[in-house]
Design a protein around this nucleic acid. Sequence first.
DNA 1: TATGAATGAGCTTTCATTCAT
DNA 2: AATGAATGAAAGCTCATTCAT
Lengths: 201, 201, 201, 201
Amino acid sequence: MDSPLQTAKAWSRSRSRRGGQPPDGDARTRILDAAEELFADGGYEATPTARIAELAGVPKGLVFHYFPRKIDVLIALVDERAVVVEEEVEAVPGDAAGALSRLARRLPLHASPAMRRILFREADTHLSVRERLGRLNAEIIHRARFALELALPGGRGDAARLEAAAATFAAVLLYQESICLLTGHHIDPDAVAELIAGALH
Amino acid sequence: MDSPLQTAKAWSRSRSRRGGQPPDGDARTRILDAAEELFADGGYEATPTARIAELAGVPKGLVFHYFPRKIDVLIALVDERAVVVEEEVEAVPGDAAGALSRLARRLPLHASPAMRRILFREADTHLSVRERLGRLNAEIIHRARFALELALPGGRGDAARLEAAAATFAAVLLYQESICLLTGHHIDPDAVAELIAGALH
Amino acid sequence: MDSPLQTAKAWSRSRSRRGGQPPDGDARTRILDAAEELFADGGYEATPTARIAELAGVPKGLVFHYFPRKIDVLIALVDERAVVVEEEVEAVPGDAAGALSRLARRLPLHASPAMRRILFREADTHLSVRERLGRLNAEIIHRARFALELALPGGRGDAARLEAAAATFAAVLLYQESICLLTGHHIDPDAVAELIAGALH
Amino acid sequence: MDSPLQTAKAWSRSRSRRGGQPPDGDARTRILDAAEELFADGGYEATPTARIAELAGVPKGLVFHYFPRKIDVLIALVDERAVVVEEEVEAVPGDAAGALSRLARRLPLHASPAMRRILFREADTHLSVRERLGRLNAEIIHRARFALELALPGGRGDAARLEAAAATFAAVLLYQESICLLTGHHIDPDAVAELIAGALH
DNA sequence: TATGAATGAGCTTTCATTCAT
DNA sequence: AATGAATGAAAGCTCATTCAT
């Protein structure tokens, strides 16, 4: 409740509620589960399909039954487990900081923490991943701009300023988790929301 | 001069000035050059040492003569070509936005665009890279905070607010290049500098 | 009528008359049809059973329902679709060249062009195929010798000469199609028939 | 001396004279030797590279050091060990049968019996092999026609007849070995030479 | 009879690394 | 310092075959 994004544990708790004990669900699901974990940990390239199969508790051949090429596992993962939510949000005029905070708390992305790591780690080299990350970034900027526009009185404030504010907020949202992982430096999205909303008066 | 970070072409121009004959420099240098390009393009894991040797125009065995293990190439690259500059900067009270802009224009990092990509791409999985990125982030935050503190009148403005501002600016600086590469979305650091400086009055 | 052997199109026309709905015939037939085409094109070894099933439009498991082992598909093909006709032909004394021409036009083999390719391609390594090809060769030589004997006056002409003539004609008949496919060089069986008949006076 | 083509034993005797005991020669040569034997026996597709390495007495990886893809082994084999001799032969007017016999005894092809099998077996499916076989066929027909033309008096005898005779002789020469292997039926090239020469008077 | 998930042995190929020269 | 053949473990992937339904 105090964290802007669900933790890894909270996420797996919410998913395992529907299933049983490991091996959880059907073979295809277990393969994706395993791949998600391993890709997030060591990266796509460094993860052999054999280890995916092993962790999933299925024979090596079955991985290729469902996913003819290794890359298809990653594609399926992104397709099915990193869904960008593109819907209109209700307008709340006047409270820009609150709107940004709410956006931070509820990213327009259905994805586990592991999937989020994969999304950033592999975007560099894999087109389908990059495309998904691009959509997410666009959606966040769109919503941030919408929140700021509504919150601000009239047409005041030039467009460039608003654009920079939205992009800045998106950058923080997208990378705060990476930054924490890589540098150990925590960023409080609420403080940033207030800061940016304040900057536009 | 109008770009916040050197472009790839500008960088290689500035480097080749010191070098000379094609193929440029001695064998060790050519190996590192090749590795830098290939690691940036396809990632460390996906780059065979044989291709490094090929691109460097040296026999395969020579790579292992200079760098006993493949990982040593990456380590040397980070050590020698991603130098974080840790020095005190002169204070310019009163002009917070200008100070941030100057910081954006001159990151405390001696590294080519390719090296910067490597730094972010491999930080996840390779300790020595992560450590370097952490130092860079710390240095940027340090300087941003210093600039903002000096620029602001008195001790006014609470510490948390200043912290958030510095972290936000660092996030933008660190990831603007990645964001552009991944999403095509440009961010103007000067606008962000002004925005953040403005937010602190 | 002017071609010594049926063309692929003529063959499939004559077969589909008995069949009917697309996809043609029952599952077993469609499997054999697919195998015939694929074995002829790429060879037995290079053809996965999965592709046979795919081309036949049947599930993979069904192939093994009808043919427990992959080799059984080839065996069935040869058994059922490369039938060597072993029957006595009427004698027509005096016209050796004509008799050979007739033999060329109507090989003692019921088989599509694809099956003929399979017969030659797989004879090297698969006993049942080799045996069938041997029977065909023997039958052709038998008929050619018979035609030449009858056509020639008395017992004149030594046996070895006649043997060589029959074998030569058989070689041309058997391999003219292969030669054309492999080298693009056409051979006119009628001209060869006349040549060989003429050689025996 | 009485056989038109060298036997397998005679061929390997003539080659091993230059080398020592097995493992004979350098690694690349041993790999080609092994491949030649195995491809001839079981066919290209059915021969794993691992068995080539095993028979050659080299580690599996070395095969791919010299031949990046499996198909390159076959290509090298055809390139280096199935050389078609394209040179003019001296004219011997008047003795067509003798000229053809000499052609039969000395095919314009430098290749072991094993290579000859490979040439015919793989021509169907591998372009480079087919091209080589086509060249051989063309050369044989060329020489046979040349021999028959010279041997025959004046311009007598129509061109089509001569063409058929040359093609027939080439077919017999090319396939006599295959026919013998596949059907057990021996053909005496000398008898065929005499027959065909006789047919043209 | 019909189906497609499941299996695992084995395939081609890759690659970091070693080493004699 | 320089070289490229040699090595073998392990990678991605294929495929005939089995089997529960």
